[in-house]
């Protein structure tokens, strides 16, 4: 599953351009995340990043005993909001490159742009669109996040294809690479969508107040805390 772009696949100029885009985008997200989370952002965003890293190690079955793993961009955006989510995924991608040699150092900008900007924001936009169309229930939130997560995986493979078309060194035409990459990622997208929807619905079942994408549902009247007139367990 080709998610981390290595050094040498996309030529230097394109990588550098993506680096500028990624740095600017993450900078904007940091500022927005700071406004939303104030000083709590450091431990909360840090633990959310650690969660995404760990969630990428949770294997789920694909078919007949083969397994895949979660990417988590849209999951993060739905759970903690797109800005904080994007920052958390960016932290994960940078730590993976520098501490675990996963993903090329010169391709860091490309990887951050694809995984921490295109995926969470593209997915979150799709999520908001679907959420507006569906009735305001928890099932809708879970379903919308699943469809958006699948959509965002395909979107990320599309972003890769565009980057390859601009600066690819592969020797195959961008159309061929695009068809193959998007084809493979449609399969991955199904798994990502199902797992994201199930994970969001599991969080909604125990701590609905923690799901950023479900804030429009309002406080939950049926929870024991609400019945006792207590706020969320902050």
């Amino acid at each position: 599953m080709a998610v981390h772009i290595p050094d040498g696949l996309i030529e230097g100029g394109t990588s550098a351009g993506a680096g500028v885009v990624a740095a600017t985008g993450v900078g904007v997200c940091l500022r927005q995340a700071g406004r939303l989370l104030d000083e709590r952002r450091v431990p909360l965003a840090g633990l959310t990043s650690a969660f995404i890293f760990a969630a990428q190690m949770v294997n789920f079955p694909v078919a007949g005993g083969t397994s895949g793993h979660l990417l988590g961009g849209v999951l993060a955006a739905v759970l903690v909001g797109p800005y904080v989510g994007a920052v958390c995924v960016a932290v994960v991608v940078v730590v993976q490159a520098l501490l675990f040699a996963d993903g090329g150092v010169s391709a860091l900008g490309l990887n951050v742009a694809n995984m921490a900007l295109v995926t969470p924001f593209g997915g979150y936009l799709a999520f908001c669109g679907l959420r507006a169309l569906l009735p305001p229930t928890r099932t809708s939130v879970a379903a919308a996040s699943g469809v958006a997560a699948g959509f965002a995986v395909v979107l990320a493979s599309l972003a890769f294809t565009v980057e390859y078309a601009v600066g690819g060194t592969g020797g195959a035409s961008a159309t061929t690479v695009g068809v193959a990459m998007i084809g493979v990622h449609v399969l991955i997208a199904v798994g990502e969508g199902v797992i994201t929807a199930l994970t969001v619905s599991a969080v909604l079942a125990s701590r609905p107040d923690l799901v950023w994408g479900a804030r429009h549902l309002g406080p939950d009247r049926s929870s024991p805390a609400a019945a006792l007139g207590l706020g969320s367990a902050r």
Binding site: T48, F51, N59, F60, V62, R207
Partner: peptide, 22 residues
């Protein structure tokens, strides 16, 4: 689990993991 339809267990763990991390 052998098939994606049986993934609920793994996903429930991921959800619990998020709540515990947060």
């Amino acid at each position: 689990p052998r098939w994606l339809g049986q993934a609920r267990g793994a996903a429930a763990s991921a959800g619990t993991l998020f709540v515990r991390s947060y």
